[in-house]
Nucleic acid binder design. Sequence first.
DNA 1: AAGATTCTGTAGAGTGTCTACTGATGACGG
DNA 2: CCGTCATCAGTAGACACTCTACAGAATCTT
Lengths: 118, 118
Amino acid sequence: MHREPPSRVELLQGTLDLLILRTLLAGPTHGHAIAKHIQRTSEDLLQVETGSLYPALHRLEAKEWIAASWKLSDRGKRARYYRLTPRGRKQLASEQSKWRAFSRAVGLILNPVDQEGP
Amino acid sequence: MHREPPSRVELLQGTLDLLILRTLLAGPTHGHAIAKHIQRTSEDLLQVETGSLYPALHRLEAKEWIAASWKLSDRGKRARYYRLTPRGRKQLASEQSKWRAFSRAVGLILNPVDQEGP
DNA sequence: AAGATTCTGTAGAGTGTCTACTGATGACGG
DNA sequence: CCGTCATCAGTAGACACTCTACAGAATCTT
């Protein structure tokens, strides 16, 4: 069935890593909670599918930007808790500034400071 | 081989269409000029490679968001001039608002408003 | 006991950008 | 003239990442 009352937006490729790293800056959590956090914090605009989430987490772990260990979640289920590594913090800073540069650049195209209009 | 003095940023997937459509809003031009315009207007932050540009133009033409015709460029070379179609204008409006929603959503993650009221 | 919820995971399709290459034409200096 | 550079168009294939769709296991609810 189809339902997206808050009309969701698709993730642009490359932004998921940034969102995950930023989420983990607040402290270690498990994958499921990361997805919920992103959805809630973005006011339901963004939704991370599990088919994107888990491969992304494994990718980040392989690059040693995050590290993981099994624990029990609040609700008593086995869950894999991820935390930022020092390299992950650096990566986050880098991706954050890349994002800012990129969105500023797009802004320049969309609203050129040039003359325009009457 | 490393060289990017103005430290370029990679295009996020899905944004090229938006940039092309927005560029054509200022009037018809050819591919080469579109790429130059995007690079210049973004203060050299964005650079569109020809391997991305031309497939994108063909894609947009196939969807009838832009239309093309051969002409002579300012410098006397044969060039394919593209212009926005009415459907292209609608698409531009739609992609523009999607972009705004998305970048706002990312902003919410990066700089949470931090509620938790009373 | 059955079903919903939480939590993790994989396979494969689809999309779109990049690198690297080809090719044609006109302008210009030697 | 001839070579070289700039302009303009294009393709092939690699690569990366998100999505849909599916599966499995444990806990809580009814």
